[in-house]
């Protein structure tokens, strides 16, 4: 169903873990954007780099793939849709160029997701939040601390809401909601229950945050660029340079 369902921070002491969150985040942002413009050379280099990072961070290739198993199903689906051409709307035919294009597209999506998984599994939310504050500070009209706190809350809430969504649809099925054929009715019921529970969760969260003196101006993590960040940035630039190769 979802890639994030299983992705969470995996503690460790690898270079990837020790990298400054700002470096990681900027690299993920730049490289995922570049993916859409990148050709084979770039994607190949990026794939190798991601694989090395996975091994280096002790996340491991197998675990990395397992974390996104649901996404792989989705990817297969996307591939089939894109690769098939319907000739005169009757029979599906395979056109080599189209299959290649579909492969390239799926490859890009895969790399973007893998980078996100690596980022989340090696960076605690606190660090992501601190990096976000740093990046948003120059922007006018943005309360960077509130924004960063809210992004942190999303990380906390999404798995919970996904879980609740599963529970609700199970509960609806066990109460024979299928018998009510109207899809409108089903969608209404599902959505109302999902929102209700999420809002109640939110109330608990407000209480928990307030009980511990929530304060926008709270102490942030100390972040420091090191030599490691320079090395990582250098590698990033090298990978980006392959964009110019056909």
């Amino acid at each position: 169903m979802a890639a994030v369902k299983v992705v969470s921070y995996q503690p460790g002491d690898s270079a990837l873990h020790r990298l400054d969150p700002r470096t990681k985040q900027i690299m993920v942002m730049v490289l995922s954007s570049a993916c859409f413009a990148g050709g084979r050379w770039f994607l190949g280099m990026l794939t190798i780099s991601i694989a090395l990072c996975a091994i280096e961070s002790r996340i491991g290739l197998i675990r990395l793939i397992r974390e996104i198993r649901y996404f792989l199903v989705f990817l297969l689906f996307v591939f089939i849709i894109r690769a098939l051409t319907f000739n005169d709307g009757l029979l599906p035919v395979l056109v080599v160029s189209q299959v290649q294009a579909a492969l390239l597209f799926c490859w890009r999506l895969l790399l973007i997701v893998l980078m996100a998984v690596l980022l989340i599994s090696t960076t605690p939310t606190g660090a992501i939040r601190a990096a976000l504050v740093w990046m948003l500070r120059p922007l006018p009209l943005v309360n960077e601390r509130a924004a960063a706190t809210m992004v942190g809350l999303i990380v906390r809430m999404v798995p919970l809401i996904l879980f609740q969504a599963g529970e609700i649809s199970d509960a609806m099925r066990s109460r024979c909601i299928e018998a009510r054929k109207s899809p409108l009715f089903r969608m209404n019921r599902f959505t109302i229950m999902l929102f209700r529970r999420a809002i109640i969760r939110g109330d608990d969260l407000v209480d928990a945050m307030q009980a511990r003196c929530y304060n926008e101006q709270r102490t942030m993590r100390v972040m420091q660029f090191t030599k490691l960040d320079a090395v990582a940035a250098g590698i990033g630039v090298l990978v980006l340079a392959t964009l110019s190769l056909a």
Binding site: Y9, P11, T125, G126, D207, A208
Partner: peptide, 18 residues
């Protein structure tokens, strides 16, 4: 519902940070 941080350590730090 009282958990706010995503590691044990981060969670304990939430109060003092505030």
């Amino acid at each position: 519902s009282q958990i706010i941080g995503d590691t044990v350590y981060d969670d304990v730090c939430f109060g003092p940070e505030n």
